[in-house]
Simulated scan of single mutants.
Amino acid sequence: MQTESSLLVLLMLLLLLQLRTANGKAGNNEAGNARILGGTPVDISAVPYLVNLRIGGNFICGGSLITPTHVVTAAHCVKGVSASRLQVVGGATRLTDATAGVRRNVAKVYTPKAYNIRTLHSDVAVLKLQSPLVGANIETIALCNSSWEAGNLIRVSGWGKTAEKSNRVSQQVRSVEVALITRKSCMDQYKLRGTIGTTMFCAAGPGVKDACEGDSGGPAVYQNQLCGIVSWGLGCGRRNYPGVYTSVKTVRSFIDKALAL
């Protein structure tokens, strides 16, 4: 049984890498992980709510600490992975610094029944930690209750790749601001490549700025609130293919239920 479980997890991780690497961020036709393109290196103290998720010590995705014992991430990062194999690291700027940050094991993984692995509808997950994640440069972030309009800037942070064709994620956390675009514009741009569903919103640029492989599950922050989760997109920073995010407001009921369990 242990061998079968290990093989299943390995196959899932390979699938995520292939899906995202083939065309960038995850999607119904092009799935995978996301990264920070065109951003700047920052210290974790600038984004203390940002955490990194690991399996067997290996980095897989980003996440956001919303209570001392709960992390919000993308469902495609953790769906089908047992809680016992996951670990969350907070307060660390660099992925390679083994002595930095605070590590916590995961007790439970919650994903919504509405999550669709093909379309990435409701691409959200909540991780319940075995004990509170507290320490230096670790803070929680409030869930979104803000309204926005096209042109407003959101801040995206993570350890994802800094170029679409790169073979490595960034070892230091990076951050970038991208502009929200209208749903109609996003749907028009993706009409032949993917579905922009009701749980999603889009943001891009200005210029070559985006999330990329490795940024999946990480925060999209507006007015100091967690308003989006890095989900998918075609490539990284490609013209006419904006990044696609799960809207926290549209999946808020699921998050609240998970917090109550």
Rank of each mutant, 00 (worst) to 15 (best):
T3D: 14
S5K: 15
L8G: 10
V9D: 13
L14Y: 13
L19V: 10
R20S: 12
G24Y: 00
A26E: 08
E30H: 13
E30Y: 13
G32K: 03
R35Q: 06
I36Q: 04
G39V: 01
D43F: 06
I44N: 06
N52T: 11
N52H: 12
N52F: 12
N52W: 06
L53H: 12
G56L: 03
G57K: 05
N58Y: 10
I60T: 13
P68N: 06
T69I: 11
V71I: 14
V71G: 06
V71E: 10
V78T: 14
R85T: 07
R85C: 02
V89H: 14
G90I: 13
A92W: 13
A100W: 03
G101P: 12
V106M: 12
A107H: 05
K108F: 11
V109H: 15
Y115H: 13
Y115V: 04
Y115C: 03
R118A: 08
T119Y: 12
H121T: 02
H121W: 10
A125L: 10
Q130V: 12
P132G: 04
A136R: 14
I138K: 03
E139C: 02
N145D: 15
S147F: 10
E149C: 09
N152F: 10
I154P: 14
G160V: 00
K161T: 11
E164R: 05
V169A: 12
Q171P: 08
I181Y: 09
D188F: 06
T198W: 06
T198S: 14
M200E: 13
A204S: 09
K209C: 04
D210R: 01
S216I: 00
G218W: 00
P219F: 00
P219Y: 00
V221D: 09
Q223W: 01
L226Y: 11
V230K: 01
N240H: 07
P242I: 00
G243F: 01
G243M: 03
V244E: 01
S247P: 00
V248P: 04
R252G: 00
F254N: 09
D256H: 08
L259H: 08
A260K: 03
L261F: 05
